[in-house]
């Protein structure tokens, strides 16, 4: 067995060159998805290691948005004042991703890279209307997360592209943001159902809402039918309208964790509670 090649770029430009030259190499960040059971898996031909690449780290204010580098860990996200103050659901999701050892290594870029239907940050990215900045030697572009995940663990990322950062537009002042994960135990559990919502309120009336949910379809989804059903309603009415509209808006599966009927019922209650708590 020959040894895999290993490269640790020190700049984004170098990383993009390597990515373009070796699209078959393992693209590695914190390894908490890729390295599970790694000693029983096929050894990759090469490894492109992005872990702690400085240019992919950090959280910054950028005009009316914050920018989170793809290499930022959950621990860094959870601790960061810009996230805690302006984007609490993301801090809350970060705190529920695995346990502390996973949060110290797992990155937001890795969660987006995998784009599993149970990726806990992904409904939050949908509810916050996040844009994913990706780049290659050909140039860079931004993709809204709602167009990024295109199927079961399938993404719009090209073979020569890297995820650079996540951009979260700052919501208007009267926006309410909520997040909830349902799992078998409080920590270190894969979600049965989880979701996030942002809603703009005028007095007690819903002006607009965005709802992202995970583990209720083959990919993280926006519940646009539910979002439309709640506009113009009081919070209490919105809760009832949401409860009624959620089951038809999702397509959950049955697996070892839950049945689809269970997921439908829990999802309906969870979204209803986003409006009336």
């Amino acid at each position: 067995m020959s040894e895999p090649l290993y490269a640790r770029p020190t700049s984004v430009a170098e990383a993009l060159e390597l990515r373009a030259a070796h699209p078959d190499w393992m693209l590695l960040a914190g390894g908490t998805d890729l390295l599970v059971d790694s000693n029983h898996r096929k050894v990759p031909v090469g490894m492109l290691d992005l872990w702690r690449l400085a240019a992919l780290g950090g959280i910054r204010q950028r005009d009316a948005a914050i920018e989170i580098g793809a290499g930022t860990t959950w621990l860094e996200i959870e601790r960061h004042p810009l996230v805690r103050v302006g984007f609490l659901p993301l801090a809350e999701a970060a705190r529920e991703i695995g346990a502390r050892q996973i949060q110290a290594r797992g990155t937001i870029g890795g969660n987006i890279g995998t784009s599993s239907p149970v990726g806990d940050s992904l409904p939050v990215l949908l509810a916050l209307d996040a844009e994913i900045e990706v780049a290659s030697v050909r140039g860079s572009r931004r993709v809204p997360y709602r167009d990024y995940c295109v199927g079961y663990r399938k993404t719009a990322l090209a073979a020569d592209e890297l995820i650079i950062a996540v951009h979260l537009p700052t919501p208007v002042a009267s926006t309410r943001m909520v997040w909830r994960k349902v799992g078998t135990r409080k920590a270190q559990s894969i979600s049965k159902v989880m979701g996030a919502a942002t809603m703009v309120l005028d007095g007690g009336t819903v002006v607009s809402a965005r709802i992202g949910m995970g583990a209720v379809a083959d990919r993280p989804i926006r519940l646009t039918a539910v979002e439309q059903a709640v506009v113009g309603l009081s919070l209490l009415q919105a809760a009832e309208a949401a409860r009624a509209a959620v089951p038809a808006a999702i397509a959950p599966i049955s697996d070892i964790r839950s049945t689809s009927d269970y997921r439908r019922a829990v999802a309906a209650n969870l979204v209803a509670r986003f409006f009336a708590v």
């Binding site: 640790r8 914190g30 390894g31 390295l35 490894m47 290691d49 872990w51 502390r100 050892q101 110290a104």
Partner: peptide, 17 residues
Amino acid sequence: LDGETVNSCLVAVAQCH
């Protein structure tokens, strides 16, 4: 690893260079 507790089963040794 660099001051944070991590699972060493999920770290490729080259990442520790």
